[in-house]
Structure formats: structure tokens, C-alpha cells
């Protein structure tokens, strides 16, 4: 079973101090070849989880397996196949883009051509002698990604890579991530606190809140979950009568409107027909805009 996943954690828990537990039994399962969006509000435990995956923090409880091997048993060899960008882009501001990559070239055991390859890939090959601290934010982000790509990674871990980027930068980054996944087959874990930002590029989603996993699955599964949670707002000429007619949908009255759950668009038409048949005028028939972002907010606020 473990071999299906490039990364798998089992009951991962972590606490910074005795009375404050940050992670509770996290079971991440990242399939090879997927783009896994690791979503959660700020302070939900994303960076702590990713830090544990990279051995930046000592494991307290649970286990982490990468490429089918326990991280604690073979950390150095595992990290040779992992590219990382944790929190903010980190590189040496006094060095050029090329020099920054050369700092890690031998550490990852790659040749000089690879440095040029990744610089071309992120469109930084013509930055010459310009020092990295003089780069724009977008260029800095691309340099950090170039560094993450340097080892020819099988797994790329990007923690909040869109932080501080303008809309163009976000679109560029999204394109690059898709390209890396589709053309080079790199498995990518991308964390973010904004679901809308990653839902356009991910294949799988994991939602974490207050250190607990609320959801994990494919994007389709999340859409299915969203559908189950979908609500329809109604306002009619006779709301109490309409509620009686539609009792099987568990309607809830609030002020002038009432809402009920539905599973498909066909059900909305059926509800409308039922009301019409009973001579009830429909003033409002509005599927609640329950996109993934609202679902995410619902899921997290219900527990807060």
C-alpha cells in the first residue's frame, strides 16, 4: 500500500510546548505524479507539517515515509530527491542567481549544465551579474524555485509560494507548476491559505485546520463533498406551506427566506415544479454560491 504514495505520514503529531499541541495525528497521503494542495488558514500547522517532512524539526510522534523509506533512516539520500521552498524565498542576496545555484550544485551532485537548465526554465538565464537582492519579488520567487528544481527532484515541496506575488506572478507560477508536473512528472506539494489560489492547478487536496486534517482526497471528491453540502435559498408567496411541501429536503427557515439541501441541478428544477404545482409563487430560487472557497471557510469556521 505504502508504495502507491511518494509521501505518507502516519499519526504525525507535534507540540511546541507541553500544553500546546500543534499537530494531531496527521495522515498525509501524496500520490506519485499528483499536485497536492495542502490548504489551511494561517497558523493551522501547514509549515510545521512541512518542516517535519524535511527533517527541519525532530519527529515526536508518528512516522514519515518518503519514496517508501522512513525519513529518519535515510534522510540525506531522501533529501537528494526533494526540492524545497519553505516559507520565504531563501538565497544569498550578495550573490548572483548563477552563484546561488552553484552554492548547492555539488551538494546535490549535479553538473554545471543543470544550473543553466533550471535558470532557463524559470527565465532567469540572462540576469548576468545582477545580485539576487536587487531582483524583483517575482524574480526572487523564481530563483527560489530554480533552487528547488536544481536536484532534478522527484518531489517538490512549496510552502506558500504565491506569497507576495502580483496576479501576473501567480498566473506565471501556476503555469510553471503545471508544466513541471505534466512535462517532467514531478510530484508537487503546494501549501496555501487560499483555496481559490491552488484549486486551479491541484489534483488532490488536503485541508488542515487547528492541526487536524478535515479533508483529504482528489479535487473531484472535494467537489462531491461540496455538492453534498450545497444549499438552495428560497422565498415564496407562502413560505410555511412551501416548507411543509418540501419537508423531505430538511428546510430551515430564517427571516423571510428558507434554505434546503440539494444534490443536483435536476433537484432544483424538481423543487420548482413541486411549488408551482401547489400554486405557490416563487420569488427567489437561488443556489447558494457554495464554491470551494466557501466550503473551505464553512469547514474551518464550523470548527473554530
Amino acid at each position: 500500500m505504502r508504495n502507491n504514495y511518494i509521501l505518507q505520514t502516519t499519526d504525525l503529531s507535534y507540540n511546541y510546548s507541553k500544553n500546546v499541541q500543534t499537530l494531531f495525528d496527521i495522515n498525509l497521503q501524496v500520490e506519485k505524479g499528483s499536485i497536492y494542495g495542502f490548504i489551511g488558514p494561517n497558523g493551522s500547522g501547514k509549515t510545521t507539517t512541512l518542516s517535519l517532512l524535511l527533517g527541519l524539526r525532530n519527529l515526536q510522534k508518528g512516522s514519515i515515509a518518503l519514496f517508501g523509506k522512513e525519513l529518519k533512516d535515510d534522510r540525506i539520500n531522501i533529501l537528494k530527491k526533494v526540492g524545497t521552498l519553505i516559507e520565504s524565498p531563501s538565497f544569498y542576496g550578495h550573490l548572483t542567481a548563477r552563484e546561488n545555484l552553484n552554492v548547492y550544485r555539488d551538494v546535490y551532485g549535479v553538473d554545471k549544465n543543470r544550473v543553466e537548465e533550471v535558470l532557463t526554465l524559470v527565465d532567469l538565464s540572462d540576469t548576468g551579474r545582477k545580485k539576487a537582492r536587487h531582483f524583483s519579488l517575482g524574480m526572487k520567487q523564481r530563483l527560489a524555485i530554480a533552487l528547488a528544481l536544481l536536484p532534478n527532484p522527484e518531489l517538490l515541496i512549496l510552502d506558500e509560494p504565491t506569497n507576495g506575488l502580483d496576479p501576473n506572478g501567480i498566473i506565471e507560477l501556476r503555469g510553471l507548476i503545471k508544466k513541471l508536473n505534466q512535462e517532467l512528472g514531478i510530484t508537487i506539494i503546494i501549501s496555501s491559505h487560499i483555496l481559490a489560489e491552488v484549486e486551479k492547478m491541484v489534483t488532490h487536496i488536503g485541508i488542515i485546520f487547528k492541526g487536524k486534517m478535515l479533508f483529504q482526497g482528489t479535487l473531484q471528491e472535494l467537489h462531491g463533498f461540496q455538492q453534498k453540502k450545497a444549499k438552495l435559498n428560497l422565498h415564496t408567496s407562502d413560505n410555511p406551506e412551501a416548507i411543509k411541501i418540501l419537508h423531505e429536503y430538511s428546510p430551515e427557515l430564517s427571516d423571510e427566506i428558507f434554505s434546503l439541501s440539494y444534490n443536483s441541478l435536476q433537484q432544483i428544477a424538481e423543487i420548482n415544479r413541486k411549488l408551482m404545482k401547489n400554486n405557490i409563487d416563487v420569488y427567489l430560487l437561488q443556489p447558494k454560491g457554495n464554491n470551494l472557497e466557501e466550503l473551505f471557510i464553512d469547514m474551518t469556521t464550523n470548527l473554530s
Binding site: 518542516s51 524535511l54 527533517g55 527541519l56 534522510r75 540525506i76 539520500n77 533529501l79 537528494k80 526533494v82 524545497t84 519553505i86 516559507e87 520565504s88 531563501s90 538565497f91 544569498y92 542576496g93 548547492y104 551538494v107 546535490y108 533552487l147 536536484p151
Partner: peptide
């Protein structure tokens, strides 16, 4: 301070070096 100023400690520790 080369590492502190550039916020590169995490990059150093997440690279394959003991």
C-alpha cells in the same frame, strides 16, 4: 550572519547535508 540575514538556515537544513 550570512545565513541569518538571508533567512537561509531552513534551506541549508533541508538540503542533503548532515
Amino acid at each position: 550572519q550570512i545565513e541569518y540575514r538571508n533567512h537561509t538556515w531552513k534551506q541549508v537544513f533541508s538540503s542533503p547535508q548532515s
